[in-house]
Write a protein that binds this DNA or RNA. Structure first.
Length: 561
RNA sequence: CGGGAUGUGGCGCAGCUUGGUUAGCGCGCAGCGUUCGGGACGCUGAGGCCCCGGGUUCGAAUCCCGGCAUCCCGACCA
């Protein structure tokens, strides 16, 4: 491509509305332009990168045995009503009506539609397994789009759906997708981890997220320094801190006046102690009764862990409205011995060998030297805190760490939820009907572009991994070298390289600066000085390494690289 | 949804407090000349519904009211 003809305008100044590096540089380098909040146009360079990521994903999906299809983006709302997700997805969906008043939505994902299609075609165990995927635009009217492509309202996603006879089949499909995902992100040059996750809105059981490690990532995840344990903060757990209660060294329990101090930090400061010696009692609803989650004051309750600790029961943390409905609850001053509590679920850290400062079950009062066993008795134990750095890994005991990441992929074992709702059943070899067992697997393709830009750039601009760069080689013609540069351009193109040829009538400094900003991996500089000695200069964008190549050795040299 | 900030040629910004010529600056763009290995310089030029609507006033980018848009922070943890 001759740069003199490329639809491109680079910007010298950072766009005022871009905060993170990927957004800032993709706009400055002319890859994307914002149309509205969370909506972007992909200019030619950006479109090529998106295409290259798509191609990598396509190759790995095909290799893993999945089959590509293409589903409509506009989907009847009726389909979503059948699984109830028109409500649960609710405001996240872009909804509208056609001229006849029929409801439609722009697809935020496609479990319903795929299930309905499979239900309409396949009915026999002989048909299974099958794994279908598409690469298509998805729409979510996000609460708060931000960080450019990282949380957009329109984004390109690869979504795959597997259908199996049983759980063993699902596990095999899931494993195949998991491995393929590792290949995709490795090929894209991302530093990533697969972390255990909660399934969230989509439903189902086992799920793992692929997180590209990045300081600007919106999600924190926990990982172990010495083994491969990794989980997002919702799903993460730790080893119990105390297996059994040691006798607490404490004096008599004492009631103290703590006026207007509902917060742990304020109470600790007021009493000259530290937050980790204060017990926090968080009220929750368990099957309509009052429960208390008891954790040290420097910790937070993990609502997912809380639910996991009380299997089979419906658990929900109290909201302001619950406290309004229960004026008898001294919010901020509840102790673990509160009389109305049917369940007192303590974290293992509560077994620490010392007395605690706790709420005195009365507004403006706390008690000191509150002792486990003497002053309060838990009804249950569990690991219910949000994991913090330094906690022990549940599988090996080494220290856990927390990093931030960008969720670039997510694999789920869904089970039969959608198959049942949409009638995706099959007949087995004994003539009996069963719902198909589903998995679903997503990759944020446009988000990968941003995540890679986030990881691969420097002060001068982008620095694409070779696999994703919009062009392989950036050929710069400096000064009066037209014929030689033209010849090289033709040779390289003929040899199969995607070449961006800066044939513009611009000064060298402009060309160098733009080349670094665009971030194509190999820069070839044809200048009058070098040409006089029969050489062109090669610069590697990532490392900055330079060397010289004889003009007639350029094509073979690049072929080797 | 709550809080904060912003909206002025394609991009980045000043002007607004204290209303008053023809609305400025840098980049970019066009023409001419000089220059030519890390975002050159000079001269000339084009390009603006000052976010939208209403109001105050002889007069509004500027003051008032109401919208809209964009960005940031937060969105239950006692």
């Amino acid at each position: 491509m001759r740069m003199s003809r490329l639809f491109l305008r680079t910007l010298r100044d950072d766009p005022s509305d871009a905060e993170v590096d990927s957004h800032r540089l993709l706009v400055r380098a002319g890859y994307i332009r914002k149309v509205a909040s969370g909506l972007y146009s992909w200019l030619p360079l950006g479109a090529r990168v998106l295409q290259r990521v798509s191609e990598i994903v396509r190759e790995e999906m095909d290799r893993a045995g999945a089959q590509e299809l293409l589903l409509p983006i506009v989907q009847p709302l009726e389909l979503w009503e059948r699984t109830g997700r028109d409500k649960s997805y609710g405001p996240l969906m872009f909804k509208f009506e056609d001229r006849k008043g029929t409801g439609f939505a722009l697809s935020p994902t496609a479990e319903e539609l795929v299930s309905a299609i499979v239900a309409g075609e396949y009915t026999s165990y002989r048909d299974l397994p099958v794994n279908l995927y598409q690469i298509n635009w998805k729409y979510r009217d996000e609460l708060r789009p931000r960080f450019g492509l990282l949380r957009a309202r329109e984004f390109l996603m690869k979504d795959a759906y597997s259908f199996d006879r049983d759980l063993a089949g699902l596990q095999a499909a899931y494993d195949a997708m998991f491995d393929a995902y590792g290949q995709v992100f490795t090929r894209c040059g991302l530093t990533f981890r697969a972390v255990k996750a909660q399934s969230g809105e989509i439903g189902g059981d086992t799920s793992q997220e692929f997180m590209a490690v990045a300081a600007v990532g919106e999600d924190a995840f926990v990982w172990c320094e010495s083994c491969d344990y990794a989980a997002n903060t919702e799903a993460a757990t730790r080893r119990p801190t105390h297996q059994s209660a040691a006798p607490a060294a404490a004096g008599p329990r004492t009631r103290v006046h703590t006026p207007d101090l509902p917060g742990v930090d304020g109470v600790a400061r007021h009493l000259g102690t530290s937050p980790d010696l204060v017990l926090k009692c968080i009220a929750f609803d368990v099957d309509g009764e009052l429960g208390l989650a008891v954790v040290p004051g420097d910790r937070e309750v993990n609502e997912f862990a809380l639910k996991g600790a009380l299997p089979g029961q419906t658990v929900r943390l109290y909201r302001d409205s619950d406290f309004t409905a229960h004026p008898d609850l001294p919010k901020g001053y509840i102790g673990p011995d509160f009389v109305g509590a049917k369940v007192v679920l303590c974290d293992s850290a509560v077994r620490a060998p010392h007395g605690w400062v706790t709420g005195a079950n009365e507004i403006d009062h706390h008690t000191t030297d509150t002792v486990l066993g003497r002053d309060f008795t838990p009804t249950a134990w569990g690991e219910i805190v949000v994991v913090a750095p330094g906690d022990q890994c549940p599988s090996c005991g080494a220290a856990l760490r927390i990093d931030r990441g960008i969720e670039v992929g997510h694999v789920f074992q869904l089970g039969t939820k959608y198959a049942e709702a949409l009638g995706a059943n099959y007949t087995d070899d004994a003539g009996e009907q069963h719902p198909m067992v589903m998995g679903c697997y997503g990759i944020g393709i446009s988000r990968i572009v941003a995540a890679v830009a986030e990881e691969h750039h420097d002060d001068n601009g982008l620095a694409w991994p070779a696999a994703l760069a919009p062009y392989d080689v950036h050929l710069l013609a400096l000064g009066d070298v037209g014929p030689a540069a033209d010849a090289l351009y033709s040779e390289l193109t003929a040899a199969g390289h995607a070449v961006l040829y800066d044939d513009r009538d611009a000064r060298p400094g402009v060309k160098f600066a733009d080349a670094d900003l665009l971030g194509i991996p190999v820069q070839l500089v044809v200048g009058t000085k070098g040409l006089a000695r029969g050489v062109v200069e090669r610069k590697m964008r990532v490392t900055g390494e330079r060397d010289e190549l004889q003009v007639d050795a350029v094509v073979p040299a690049l072929a080797r690289a």
